[in-house]
């Protein structure tokens, strides 16, 4: 077989990736864990990324950073013993007070979405990811990512217009 060796570029300069993607990762985290905890989780995310930076690749670094951010957000939630919550509620986010801090009632509606739609919609608009990247972060197919964004957005639109 004619095996073509694919040339893979090495990791990009950390600072370039930070400037290009950091603000969106941080912004997504403000919705994911709340504005008051976003800075800490963002730092955890970027430190974890930097520790494994040799694995970063120019073409996929953004989705990779969001994957780490997602994991760090879950860690943070599990650690958060200040507000003990039933297991089923673990993934319910944003927390109600986050909605207040973000100052927009649309986040109440986001909170009410099914988990997958909530992740997909926030990654799409707050994280500015492509459907393909969303699929990679959520470990689902690109069409499934697209469907989750579409359904989530549709529900939000209906509920907002009912207000």
């Amino acid at each position: 077989m004619n095996e073509k060796r694919q040339r893979t570029d090495g990791p990009p300069p950390f600072e370039v990736a930070l400037e290009e993607h950091g603000p969106r990762v941080h912004s997504w985290l403000t919705a994911r864990v709340g504005p008051d905890r976003a800075d800490d989780v963002f730092q955890e995310t970027m430190i974890a990324a930097l520790s494994a930076w040799d694995r970063a690749r120019v073409e996929s670094v953004r989705a990779w950073l969001f994957t780490i951010a997602q994991n760090k957000a879950i860690d943070e939630q599990r650690r958060d013993s200040r507000r003990p919550q039933p297991e089923a509620e673990m993934d319910a986010w944003p927390a109600a007070e986050v909605t207040d801090l973000l100052g927009d009632p649309v986040w109440d509606e986001v909170r009410a979405l099914p988990e997958k739609q909530r992740v997909a919609v926030t990654l799409r608009f707050r994280g500015d990811l492509t459907h393909r990247e969303i699929g990679s972060v959520m470990e689902i197919s690109e069409p499934a990512a697209r469907r989750n964004v579409f359904e989530g957005l549709k529900t939000l639109r209906e509920r907002i217009s009912d207000e």
Binding site: G22, P23, R24, H26, S27, T30, A31, L102, D104, V106, V110, V121, T122, F125, R126, D128, L153, L156, R157, I160
Partner: peptide
């Protein structure tokens, strides 16, 4: 409205 909802979700990320 569609685009308004999307920009509410997007917020204003930090920059520069």
């Amino acid at each position: 409205m569609n685009s308004e909802l999307e920009s509410r979700l997007a917020g204003r990320p930090a920059s520069g």
